[in-house]
Simulated scan of single mutants.
Amino acid sequence: MEIDPLPNGSGSVGTTIPEAAATTTAATAALKTTPSSKLSQLTESLKLEHQLLRVPFEHYKKTIRANHRAVEKEVSSVISSVADVADCNEPSKEDAVLNLTSLVSRLQGLKRKLEEGSRTENLQAQRCRARLDHLESVDAENLSEWNNVRLKRILVDYMLRMSYYDTAMKLAESSNIQDLVDIDVFQEAKKVIDALRNQEVGPALAWCVDNKSRLKKSKSKFEFQLRLQEFIELVRAENHMRAILYARRHLAPWGATHLKELQRVMATLAFRSNTGCAKYKVLFEPKQWDFLVDQFKQEFCRLYGMTLEPLLNIYLQAGLSALKTPYPYRDCHSLTAYGFIYIYLVTL
């Protein structure tokens, strides 16, 4: 998932209480066994590991919500079927057997979903635990090795953001850090990005539905922008009646908060896709899809509490800024290594 350089910082409003407590606990455990000479260095290092804990924690919460919705839907269906059977007046033996068989099948399906959901949640919980253990394992004796693992994590993060998925997976597997990187999370984003690049909004809209409450809480306009683009495509195809019906169903609810944008897009019914008016012509340009891709990347990073820019860029920028002072020159060789790695990856 290639992400263009953006302002540094997490898109999240703030760290949640469990994450803050987990980071504090890990830092405290690590620092108890650390000599005072390296206390400051470790403290600053652990402060930068917010994303390491935040991403799996958010993924874990999302998995729980998805499993809860699926089970709730299936339970409602089973209860409805039981009620229908109970309402039958003196059903025949064949009907009773058929109804009971159907109920047993539904209950077996519900059991399978519960088991699958439980396995998925356990995997997510294990990943959170593995990252906490990783943070707690740092001390003065293994600091060099721990920093080496962190460098590999940063490289995997960069590769995933730049869409080098196979390379990222191989590095993670060879370094045995699968639980410390977020390959599955970025692969989820890849499906939406690939669809948008193919000018398909379906997967992106499905993603918005799955994360509707959180997007609404952050006052995201992403779903509205997807709806606008879908409307534009109907106008481009000169399917005006469908476009009007689509606007009534999907765009009208946004009128109270985005009236000006809505009015501008609705005017395309009169100007058409071949208009020479720059104000409306831009709405039909292919770069609108690129804008949606960039917008999704930002929303995705905010949702999972990721930095908007690759971690490698952030570390490199911080290191280059520090080089302006006389203090860090003793570490310039390691910084130069970071720089060469960065330049190499950019030029791939």
Rank of each mutant, 00 (worst) to 15 (best):
V78M: 08
V192W: 00
A130K: 08
E173G: 14
K190A: 15
E145Y: 11
K73C: 09
D87G: 06
A27D: 04
H68G: 12
K212W: 13
F224H: 09
C208T: 13
G14Y: 10
Q295A: 11
D84C: 07
L196T: 03
S102D: 10
Q108E: 15
S273L: 03
L320A: 09
A204C: 08
T15P: 06
L123Q: 13
K61V: 09
D210M: 07
L114I: 12
V282I: 13
S45C: 01
V138S: 11
E285I: 02
Q317F: 12
T24F: 08
R236E: 06
A22T: 04
L283P: 01
V97Y: 01
T34R: 12
A204R: 00
Y158A: 05
H333E: 01
K221C: 06
G109S: 15
A86W: 08
Y342I: 11
K221Y: 04
H258D: 10
A27C: 14
G117R: 13
L312A: 06
K217D: 06
A66G: 10
Y246R: 00
G9M: 07
N8Q: 09
A189C: 04
M241I: 05
E233A: 04
T167C: 05
L180A: 10
Q51R: 02
L52G: 04
F300C: 08
E44F: 04
G14Q: 06
R112F: 09
H258F: 09
L228C: 07
Y158F: 13
L262A: 05
R129E: 12
T275V: 08
A172T: 04
A20P: 13
R242T: 02
T34W: 05
A322S: 06
G117A: 11
A337F: 10
K47D: 10
F340C: 15
M306R: 11
F186L: 02
D331M: 05
A70G: 02
F296G: 02
V293D: 01
M1E: 03
N99D: 15
I17S: 12
M159Q: 10
A20M: 10
A247Y: 00
